[in-house]
């Protein structure tokens, strides 16, 4: 699986999309639910709040370029944020 390399060079939003897709690709072989949970957990544990806020806003704007599991993981992240 390859990523859209242009994303890396088009500003911070696109860089975050690229990173999220990379994480998602690592879990590609895993079943759907645990994979989405693992992606969400990774972003929550390792991304600074401003990066998380940006990617959540990006998904809210349509999430163009994000892999489907990445989008779901980030929506889960948003829900977790709302709960906490």
């Amino acid at each position: 699986m390859s990523h859209d390399v242009n994303l890396l060079h088009q500003g911070q939003d696109q860089r975050l999309v690229y990173m999220a897709n990379q994480i998602t690709t690592f879990f590609a072989y895993e079943p759907d639910e645990p994979a989405v949970a693992a992606i969400e957990s990774h972003i929550r544990k390792f991304w600074d709040p401003r990066m998380r806020a940006k990617i959540i806003a990006y998904v809210a704007d349509g999430g163009d370029g994000l892999l489907p599991r990445a989008q779901r993981a980030i929506r889960q992240l948003q829900e977790m944020n709302a709960i906490s």
Partner: peptide
């Protein structure tokens, strides 16, 4: 309680003005 920025993300955030 929140994780901070990694080096490349610090530089991104600098360009971003934060």
């Amino acid at each position: 309680p929140e994780p901070g920025l990694r080096i490349p993300n610090m530089l991104d955030a600098a360009i971003d003005g934060t």
